[in-house]
């Protein structure tokens, strides 16, 4: 284990061994290879360099690379674990793993906390939630009066901010999500369950011995 080396066709920056990635995640080796098919398609959509740029990520999400979206930026930043402005295959698989139906609830809750903690202060603050609300209203072309936005914020913080300090800490978030499990829906991608049927071509590119899968 751990000494498998990819051959030339698989060489790209950050491309880790499928057997090693499968050992770290809920994915099987075949599933990691199927994810590589998806990764190749996304990472070659603008520049074929074996890395996913923000532009390529947005193109895959919206089929339009010019679309700026606060949330897509945020998700991309969480995929960009090494803070290099690009996502390599290993991080792509490890972050998608959090979205696996079998991933732990704790990991999903942690991920959403980081997602909404826009400024990385360790708290989800009222200003951050307001900023996200305004962004979703713009995105959906829905108009709400400022007063209505404040009412939504009041209601949310009344439920979530148990110690009434005006911000949501990690333990408050944990309790809030446990009471409102619908908030974790975005964290589970059923597609990941049968990724090998979505990308069957992985079989033709597989370089791992069948015994290892």
């Amino acid at each position: 284990m751990g000494c498998f080396h990819s051959t030339a066709s698989r060489q790209c920056p950050g491309h880790e061994d499928p057997v090693f990635l499968a050992s770290q995640t809920a994915f099987s080796v075949s599933e990691v290879e199927a994810l590589f098919e998806l990764f190749k398609s996304i990472s070659s959509s603008v520049i074929d360099d074996g890395l996913i740029s923000k532009e390529e990520f947005q193109l895959a999400l919206f089929k339009n690379k010019k679309k700026e979206n606060l949330f897509a930026n945020r998700i991309f930043d969480l995929f960009d674990v090494k803070r290099k402005g690009v996502v390599d295959f290993g991080d792509f698989v490890r972050v998608l793993n959090v979205f696996h139906p079998n991933a732990s609830q704790e990991d999903k809750i942690d991920f959403t906390f980081k997602l909404y903690d826009l400024d990385g202060t360790g708290y989800i603050e009222r200003d951050e939630v307001r900023q996200m609300l305004i962004a979703i209203l713009c995105e959906s072309e829905l108009k709400l009066a400022d007063e209505t936005i404040e009412q939504i914020l009041d209601k949310t913080f009344k439920e979530a901010d148990v110690n009434l300090d005006g911000k949501i800490d990690k333990s408050e978030w944990h309790q809030f999500v446990t009471k409102n499990p619908s908030l974790l829906k975005i964290m589970t991608l059923q597609y990941l369950r049968d990724i090998t049927t979505t990308f069957p071509s992985f079989v033709f590119h597989s370089e791992v011995d069948e015994m290892a899968t």
Partner: peptide, 25 residues
């Protein structure tokens, strides 16, 4: 009615948070 929802249910409606579309290749 939006005021009956909590802020995060609204936020989660963003297409930017719904990664399912990554799989529509």
């Amino acid at each position: 009615k939006p005021t009956a929802m909590n802020a995060f249910d609204l936020i989660n409606m963003s297409k930017g948070l719904n990664l399912g579309s990554l799989f529509d290749t």
